[in-house]
């Protein structure tokens, strides 16, 4: 019941949040001194041609009119055509979304699987060499520039050692499209060759993205554990002889993860939007690459579409985080 109220509440906020987001991005992208009409018309176009194209695209109208039209068309499920590819933006986005989602999800899962246990161990062995070592590694992991780290990985593992492919999602064609997630599609089709190949292509981009994400999770889990370990309930549970393992991995961890879950939500959002650089380095055909190209060619519709998609996902992830929160921490009442 509480969860239901929460979901309804969040959905009610969804529309105004998205409208605000759209307005901001719309006006920012339109005050940038760039002329998409000129870009479409090409270098040798006459001023008349450019003006005609501008009128056709609706770019000669006042900004608020353009914005209003845009909102109306989005309600129809139409985000306009990409000026650059000439295809409907919705199609472009949907074809690229699974690639980014797959990369992001795998990264988050890997980061949790590695980060949470490391954070717990660091807290249990506070101030041991292991804790100090992890601190150095995590700070380095947070500070490292991902494009540099990505190139370094490519140089070592792809160029020097030849263990992993340089980029892309698979060698040649992907599996037959069912969900667009190659790993899942390959599993459904029982195609182990493609599955293995897709996994190999994933290693380096996932590692690049997972390093800072894992570092964040380690640090928050450690802090949460230390906080919870000093609480009165741990003293009580110890005094009553609850087994240490039960106290740590059940009673303390659940409390410690409250903060970590919030961070995982943020990480997810950051990964979705911020995979841009990593996707570019690894030639990953996802939203990031698409966004870069769109921005470089002043492709308003595409940039806006990208924003809507990422904004929506961010809101959805936040909703999921809130629901998880409510499940982990029953005191959460809104």
């Amino acid at each position: 019941m509480k969860t239901f109220v929460l979901v309804v509440n969040r959905l009610a906020w969804f529309v105004p949040t998205l409208l605000g987001l759209l307005a901001i991005v719309f006006f920012i992208s339109h005050v940038i001194p760039a002329d998409p009409a000129a870009f479409v018309a090409g270098e040798n176009a006459t001023p008349e041609t450019v003006a005609a194209i501008r009128a056709r695209l609706g770019l000669d109208q006042p900004l608020y009119v353009q914005f209003w039209r845009y909102i109306l068309s989005i309600l129809d499920g139409d985000m306009g055509r990409s000026i650059y590819t000439g295809r409907p933006v919705v199609e472009d986005l949907l074809s690229r979304l699974p690639a980014t989602l797959e990369l992001t999800l795998v990264t988050v899962l890997v980061s949790i699987a590695v980060g949470v246990p490391l954070g717990v161990v660091a807290a249990l062995r506070r101030n041991s060499w292991l804790d100090h070592g992890l601190r150095v590694v995590t700070i380095a992991g947070l500070a490292i520039a991902s494009f540099w780290f990505a190139i370094l990985l490519q140089l070592l593992f792809s160029m020097r050692l030849g263990w992993t492919p340089l980029g892309g999602r698979v060698e040649g064609w992907g599996p037959e499209q069912i969900t667009g997630f190659y790993l899942i599609d390959a599993l459904i089709l029982q195609d182990h060759e493609i599955l293995l190949d897709a996994l190999q292509h994933m290693i380096l981009p996932v590692v690049t993205l997972a390093v800072p994400a894992t570092a964040t999770i380690v640090r928050f889990t450690r802090a949460g554990m230390l906080n919870a370990l000093q609480s009165n309930y741990v003293l009580y549970e110890t005094a009553m002889g609850y087994p240490r393992r039960l106290v740590i991995w059940k009673y303390v961890l659940r409390n410690a993860l409250i903060g970590t879950v919030t961070q995982i939500g943020l990480i997810f959002g950051i990964l979705l939007a911020g995979a841009v650089v990593v996707e570019a380095v690894f030639d990953w055909p996802g939203l990031g690459t698409f966004a870069v190209n769109s921005i470089l060619s002043s492709d308003y519709n595409a940039v806006m579409g990208f924003t809507v998609i990422v904004g929506t996902m961010f809101i959805v992830v936040n909703l999921v985080v809130d629901i998880l929160h409510g499940m982990i921490d029953p005191r959460e009442v809104r």
Partner: peptide, 13 residues
């Protein structure tokens, strides 16, 4: 053991 503070001795989650 019976603790001093029953408010914080239970695990809240």
């Amino acid at each position: 053991y019976i603790p001093q503070d029953p408010f914080t001795a239970f695990n809240p989650v």
